[in-house]
Simulated scan of single mutants.
Amino acid sequence: MIQLSARRILLFFSLLMTLAACVRKATPTEAATGPVTRVYIVRHAEKDLTPGLTDPPLTAEGQTRAQALAAAIPRQTRLSAVFSTNTARTRTTAQPLAAARALPVLLYEARDLPALAARLRRDYPNQNVLVVGHSNTILETVDALGAPRPVPLIPDEAYDYLLEVRLPADAALPATAVAHHYGVRSH
């Protein structure tokens, strides 16, 4: 009888060890990181390419994309702020979403992305914000926020990228970034 019980115990522990070996631990990216600040980053929508314009407006296609941006970030995602550089094309891209959320469009200096990153970390912890920039600043904004680039480059003719940077409240955890697309695919 004792031999049978020992055999059952051995079988039980063997089964338990087999099950334990099958359980996979979540990777840091899969594990809940707690509260995060989400920074959505887009390039301005399609602009008028007429030579000589110092501050080109959006084209009709760009206006349509600006409306698509308003729909791309779900209503249940509460935005706390909308940032734009001080150009007609970026402000006009930001405006439909800002208006739909009853938020002002706040200006930032594209030449000082570290200051923008510091402001976002300081003033908007655990909140969601949108930053509208340019083809030569959106990946650099990801860099300034300390996340690895989700794509190596964004072609000049691409207007449909929506980058999402997550900044964990726990500074020991890494910032992450993913690339999404919105609206009609760019040519």
Rank of each mutant, 00 (worst) to 15 (best):
V82F: 07
Q3C: 06
R91D: 00
R122Q: 12
A98M: 14
Y40S: 01
E61I: 12
T137C: 08
A60L: 13
Y108Q: 02
A32Y: 12
Y40W: 14
F12C: 01
P74Q: 01
Q63E: 06
E61F: 10
P96M: 12
A21M: 14
R38H: 10
L15Q: 04
L162S: 06
A100C: 02
L16R: 02
N126R: 15
A115Q: 11
T176K: 14
P51Y: 03
V82M: 04
V36S: 02
Y182T: 09
L11T: 07
R43K: 07
R7A: 13
A100T: 05
H181Q: 15
T59K: 05
T37V: 02
S84T: 07
Y161I: 02
A172C: 07
P150C: 09
H134R: 05
A70N: 15
A115V: 14
L153V: 03
E109V: 10
D55A: 12
I2W: 15
G34A: 10
P114G: 04
D143R: 15
S84E: 05
Q67D: 08
A110L: 13
D55P: 08
A20I: 02
R75P: 03
A26E: 15
Y124L: 05
T77M: 12
R7C: 07
V165R: 06
K25W: 05
E157A: 06
I41P: 00
G52C: 04
A81G: 06
D112G: 00
V23I: 08
E164I: 12
E157Q: 12
I138Q: 11
L103K: 08
I154R: 05
H181N: 13
R7S: 07
L11S: 06
I73N: 00
R89K: 08
A117M: 10
H180V: 04
S5P: 05
S5E: 10
V151Q: 13
L79K: 00
D156H: 09
I41H: 04
C22Q: 14
H187W: 15
S14Y: 01
V39E: 00
L130Q: 00
P150K: 07
L69E: 03
L19G: 03
P150M: 14
D143V: 10
T33M: 14
D170E: 12
L58M: 03
G34H: 09
A45H: 02
R78V: 05
A60W: 14
A110Y: 06
A110P: 13
Q76V: 05
H44S: 01
R65H: 00
P57Q: 11
E46V: 05
T59E: 00
L15G: 04
A99G: 02
R75G: 04
R119T: 08
A99L: 10
A6K: 14
D160C: 07
N86Q: 10
L163F: 12
L11R: 09
I2Q: 14
A81K: 01
E164S: 09
F83E: 00
S186K: 05
N128Q: 12
R111Q: 15
A144H: 11
A171C: 08
R121A: 14
V142M: 01
R185H: 11
R119P: 03
Y182V: 10
Q3T: 08
A177F: 13
A147D: 06
L173M: 09
P57I: 06
R111D: 10
V142G: 01
V151R: 13
A45Q: 02
A32N: 13
F13N: 08
A118D: 15
A6C: 13
A81Y: 06
L97C: 02
A26F: 13
